[in-house]
Design a protein around this nucleic acid. Sequence first.
RNA 1: GGGCGAUUAGCUCAGCUGGCUAGAGCAUCUCGUUUACACCGAGAGGGUCAUAGGUUCGAAUCCUAUAUCGCCCACCA
Length: 758
Amino acid sequence: MKKEIPKAFESTIKEKEISKIWDESGVANPEKMEEKLEELGVDIKEPFTIALPPPNANANLHIGHMCGYSFQDAMGRFNRMTGHPTLLLPGKDHAGIQTETSFTKVLKEKGIEKWSMTRGQFYDQCYEFSMENAQSAREQEKRIGLSADYSRELFTLDPKLTEIVYETFYKMYEEGLIYRDKRIINQCPYCKTALADVDTEHELQRGIFAYIVYPFVEKEDKQRAKELFGVEGLTVATTRPETMLGDSAVAVNPKDDRYKEFIGKKILLPIANREIPVIEDESIEIEVGTGALKVTPAHSPVDFEIGSKHDLEIINVINEEGKMTGDIPERFIGMDTINCSKAFVKELDELGLLVKIESIKHEVAVCERCKTPIQPIISNQWYVDVKPLAKEALKALEGGLTVVIPSGQQKALGYFFKNIQPWCISRQLWWGQRIPVWYSGGKKLHDWLRENKDRDISEYTKDTGEEVKGTGEIALGEQAPDESGVWEAETDMFDTWFSSGQWPFSTLGGVNGEDFKKYYPTQVMETARDILFWWVARMMMMSIYVTGKAPFSTVFLHGLILAADGSKMSKSKGNGVEPSEIIDRYGADSLRLWYFSDALPGSNAPVREEKIKGNRNFVNKIWNASRFILMNIDDTELEAIAKHEIDSTLERVIKTGDHIKRVERYLEKFQFNLGAEAIREFFWHQLCDIWIEEIKREISGKEIGSKERVEKLGELLWILKMNLKIMHPFIPFITESVWQELVTLGLAEGILMEQQIS
RNA sequence: GGGCGAUUAGCUCAGCUGGCUAGAGCAUCUCGUUUACACCGAGAGGGUCAUAGGUUCGAAUCCUAUAUCGCCCACCA
């Protein structure tokens, strides 16, 4: 009897051994794999490349990350086993705002306030924090079997990448696509930064709807209003009374018969006691609220539009931290918006100007990262005019150069490109890549000049009380253009997506990189569908802009992993499933197989442990079937069986060949579920339940070393090996483990990972 | 308000360009101590494929409505 083979597949032990073998082989490196293919005498095909989505280096990987890696690894392994030098290019993302938020929390738990640190201190410690997370993420990636080329691993803040990101910025600036603008932005009072529209979410929240009387100035208007409405002014309805000190007008629809006659009249804004006009605007909906809208251009995107149409004054009353500010009564300054709202309601009530308050539920924009309600405020920010980029991306999409799976998401992406808005790329953060801009005489001077185009620089001092110390010009670069000392560095950071949007070519060394020539464009982008607009869209736009070519031909969006009850997993709910626990219990292969059959594009996949357990049973079945075959081969027969030439006309051999082809087709068409089902069905029910049983009978009573035994067991061994190969992209650990058992007996060579399927 | 998708066995879902008695996994039930595996084997039950029309020799599959659910986008005060 040969050495003992355990009855059950001990996944935890085996996975470690196998990982080590793979690491040592080095064939995750495409050049190394190419050499291997040459050795094997195989036709070398086009490289297959995936720039793996870099996970945020601020937390452990979750079950969704593992899902992505499973699909990408399956694609990678399959291509590697069919003659393609394969590059799965790994990396980690600094994830600007998200990491800054989570690291701030980490500090807080230690009793340290972010604001008590210098930017530099914060940056350094955050860097360390990110590196630690990157390390554990790397370990997790390997646990699910990811065959990435770690010799090329990158972090988005790597100087090599930053250089490329800056080059793109300079190019865009010179071509007039980058500009600074003062307009209404989404301000997160908690993160204290501007956000792009796409960085906000809408949440249904409870709020108030206050009906407030805005009295007229003139006596006759008051009287007329009294006759018509019973109050001496127009009643406006608002969910945000605290913004009223920033009102510049009351707008009504010109078709609204109730208010028509008051258009052009003057209103005395309560509390502020400032006169504002009644204006007309088509966009006002007659049925909503009272049909009269208070217009606050500084603090509402809708109002901002109306304001710029009618050239209304912009009055800032809320600052970056969500506190009341500006030219307002002393008692409100510094109040937060909620308390201010309450105070206003009280005062208005005392003045007899509060009609009523309704309690309503309405959609509120919140910060995508910390869920704090955003404050729309006016501020100076950097923008990219992405319209022309989106146009090219749309062309690629419509021309079929990039195909999105599932197709419904392709339409959504097209819609996004068609309706794209300027992209605000500056963030008031400490963590990330600094926007490489310098201001002569300071940022404030530059902005003042931009806002006061018709005025002379000499008036700046009069306006602001500050000396003019430069020209207000801008210079680009990492370093100040000269030593004159007039240059002030931009302190804003890039939106994290500005760098990750360049991932497909920045990781390959940019347009002049060696890797770029060989591996760009990549073949696949595999990710979760919730970052389609943030990331996939940006990658397409920026990559086409910089390289002229669509960065990938297929976008594969895997399904959304949900908690067992079908709800979204979230940290706050505590209903997340820890991938390492699943792997400990059932093995990485079982989890992978579950992804392939359940986490299909366009679907939701609640984690069902029984199903993963079922896959574990299948993995174990493979182990035992293989073990049985090996146990049946006598030591004295090993050599003969190893040398045995397979008869390609045998029925079982033909059927096996057909099966392999079928699964190959499924993998080529990204039909992982069908592939997973096919390998299971074939191995378990065809091979184990039927053929092994048949062969058991066929060799029973035959003498050891006889021709029949060598032929039959040789056939069985061949079928097993073919099955191991085709199953390997799905379940690499078990298949490689069995392969290694074969190697020790001299029945196979090398590692399965580098074998060619046909 | 707009868009996308879903609705098939108790549960989670397959079912590609329309064609055999509609499938899988898990769950359920019955039987089984055969020298790989009980993380097993043999077998069984269970679906008017959301509803109503239509196209067709033929529809879960195509078309049109309806209903319910989900997701995304959008400035409803």
